[in-house]
Design a binder for these strands. Structure first.
Lengths: 383, 383
DNA sequence: TTCATTTAGTTCACGTTGTAGACTAAATAT
DNA sequence: ATATTTAGTCTACAACGTGAACTAAATGAA
């Protein structure tokens, strides 16, 4: 339900508005902020003053030197106070990073390890240690933690990881197994990858991020916001129908995208064990590898055709294993899209490779809290 | 960009909040409104007073008679002042209706006529007459028009009807051809049908409305809001891939849903000319008709599988020709969904027939303005 | 060097809005 | 007839943004 607006809510929104503009347009004077936000100079002065006092903004040198008139004082996002923690559990690694409010990665850690078949409690104990280490570093740097988000590779609804097929987990409240000084939210890795690419990488205000792993997930961004669907399970691109009668899928259906373009399907078809090996074979023009990737690309193109028809996408960022395979995968997928969508829509969506690679989800997780602080700094009191 | 919040915006939101609660929970006293909105009694009194003065709310008799304590005065949405016009251009008819703020259909008109091949200007001249008649009735009843929306059966982006294949139109600024005392917005018929079902029919806060006509469109509602995608072209269910190598589609691709479940495909396969004839044959257990509908249902089930995977739907309302065919179509489509989605998701989306039939889009169009007035009454000044 | 001009930022009286609690109003229960 | 209960109004107050006057700090012209 919608909340009533009182004076404090009005203020909260305007604080967020100011912070958001500083975020968008780097160093900015109070005068420029008044112009951009539509608030008066007096109001902006008060808001900026409070934000500086609270440690969200910092004044830098004078702006506009050499020109006529009193030079304004530039403010920027201050990286001195707020810390945001992003964590990720994946099949082959655990990762975490700490961002400050300016979006800079201040600390990051990564443990390479095969987590297949390990129990949730055990894996999260390792992650707890990683997080504790990061938080100690953050504290030593004078940062205080505003929030934490954990990325997992499987559908998440209501704080529960419903299933993580590659880990062999079902119905795990993964975030609740961590003990941190702030509540931890749990979110799907593809959704967070999308946010990571949106804020730090190849994203745009409207795009689809495709995360190709053993399963194929996708995160949709519309109007710079994540689209989660009714229960947060949107984006299951891996089980979009490519053929009603294709190979059997672990989901029980047949001909899902995953059976054509999932990691296992591609590697098996190419006759290799790892993505690195596949890339080597492709670079060497190995016909079997080329054929395998072409088949995956064709299927990906068909599934993306359905996605574009339903979601109206004009940009698609390919991450996960599709990142390293982009060179060989994209042209064939693009040509399917062009053939099937071109005549009706006029334009064809642009395919782009992920620029963040494996760090996309962790960065998206950490960025989530930054984003929330920027939108409503008042709800994150300073100690 | 986000707007700054001043006192007037605060007030506007709270007015909308009060109006919204009255809309949801019918007769409501000021005390109950204070409880529901979280605003204080004094504030609610002021807001309600202003809304009554402006003609958005009306006081009815006392509530809660027979109980202890002073009985409150109930308020309801007033149907005395605001009128909203919904218009629709379809292949076989023109339609329009006037709603008052309480959501009651006050006046409606409909012209049955085959518009195939008629020029936009000619068709809209007919619609103009229809609209003028409705507005005259509304004015005679003391209503003043707050807004108008026109539904067309084709994708709309930026006020332009990109293509209406069944009418043979391309790139028509249809709304601009009407002369009305308020601006007219243009919107896709499936989107408005979805809103119609949401506000007046079989919808729910999260669902997909499927409009089966010659083309197959869909409107997605999430959080009681329409999802439009990047450019407003979301919901092209008709061109979701059912088979990569199926029959050729007018869009240039092969195996689109439309080639299996579009009106022409189904009627041709059943060997009949009209949907009414098809329903008669089905009622008589004609095997050819049954086979034709079964094939359409199978394809619809596959396309909806992709849609559910991408959009996370748990309710799907079937409209257009799928409404009358629902009895014969739904079981087969549901079983495809159950087979393909059940194992992974646990639950299977519910299929329901449209309860509004051909009036869904017109009602959605008219409801749009009602909805806008309820959300922000202050921006619709009373004369 | 001095002063006008320009732009940035602050101050303060003011208007608008929601709040809290006292107060009035109107019903039933004792 | 009076207490009790619930609804609604009234009033002093506080929070916040506004707008105009004012101060501050730079450049440019005389």
């Amino acid at each position: 339900m919608t909340q009533p607006v009182r004076h404090d809510a009005m203020r909260a929104r305007n604080l967020g508005l100011v912070l958001g503009e500083v975020h968008r347009a780097a160093p900015l004077t109070r005068a420029a902020l008044a112009e951009l936000t539509g608030l008066t100079k007096s109001t902006v002065s008060k808001l900026v003053g409070d934000l500086v006092d609270a440690g969200f903004l910092a004044e830098t040198g004078p702006a506009r030197v050499g020109e006529r008139g009193r030079p304004g004082v530039s403010v920027v996002l201050s990286g001195a106070r707020v810390a945001s923690l992003g964590l990720e559990v994946n099949v082959d690694y655990l990762a975490g990073c700490v961002l400050d409010l300016s979006g800079t990665v201040r600390f990051s850690r990564r443990i390479e390890r095969d987590n297949r078949g390990r129990r949730p409690a055990r894996v999260l104990r390792s992650l707890q240690k990683l997080a504790d280490g990061l938080l100690a570093e953050a504290e030593a740097a004078g940062l205080s933690l505003a929030g934490a988000v954990l990325a997992v590779s499987g559908p998440v609804a209501d704080g529960v990881l419903a299933s993580a097929p590659n880990l062999g987990w079902r119905d795990v409240r993964a975030a609740d197994l961590l003990r941190l000084p702030v509540p931890v939210s749990l979110e799907n890795e593809a959704n967070l990858g999308a946010l990571g690419e949106l804020w730090f990488g190849a994203g745009s205000p409207e795009f689809l991020y495709v995360s190709g792993e053993i399963g194929i997930g996708a995160g949709l961004v519309v109007g710079s916001e994540l689209f989660r669907g009714a229960r947060g399970l949107a984006g299951e691109l891996g089980h979009v129908v490519v053929s009603s009668s294709g190979p059997g899928c672990r989901c029980g259906a047949r001909g899902c995208l995953e059976t054509y373009a999932g990691q296992e399907a591609v590697l098996t078809a190419a006759g290799v064990r790892t993505v690195e090996a596949l890339v080597r074979q492709l670079a060497a023009d190995d016909p079997r590898a080329v054929r395998a990737v072409a088949a995956a690309a064709e299927a990906l193109g068909l599934a993306l055709t359905s996605a574009v028809n339903l979601l109206d996408l004009d940009r698609i960022v390919l991450g996960g294993i599709f990142g390293p395979l982009f060179r060989w995968l994209a042209p064939a997928a693009e040509s399917v899209l062009a053939d099937r969508l071109g005549p009706l829509r006029g334009s064809v969506p642009v395919l782009a490779p992920s620029t963040l690679g494996a760090t996309a989800a962790t960065l998206g997780a950490a960025g989530t809290t930054i984003h929330r602080v920027l939108a409503d700094p008042a709800s994150f009191p300073v100690r």
